[in-house]
Amino acid sequence: AEDTGVRVELAEEDDGKKPSIALKLWVEDHKKLKGKYKESGAIEFTFDLEKEIPENVAQEMVESGFFHESDAKTVGKSIRDRVALIKWRRERTVSAAL
């Protein structure tokens, strides 16, 4: 995944089955953000792997005041990259089991 300056990680163990997973997002390099970033720490949230869209969560974070609108794309991409990795690992685990 591209280093966007925004880090997204699992906030809980992934059992590979539950549709929703807790993720944690924080800024590692605020120089990579366009908007003025007020240090807010790590933001934990739940993401539905089957139904939800990363960019929508990023927009909710902007609307909640965590990020500037100009950084919605960067935040959305960071979430998308992590979600893709989680899904890839799940598929690999299933195919290995088969």
Partner: peptide
């Protein structure tokens, strides 16, 4: 440690806590 909580109008809960310790040392 300080933990804050923001609930978006769409209902999603965002829980804010300090950046994980290990990551701070990496920076």
């Amino acid at each position: 440690c300080a933990t804050a909580q923001v609930v978006h109008s769409a209902g999603r809960r965002f829980i804010v806590s300090p950046v994980p310790e290990a990551r701070l040392k990496e920076q």
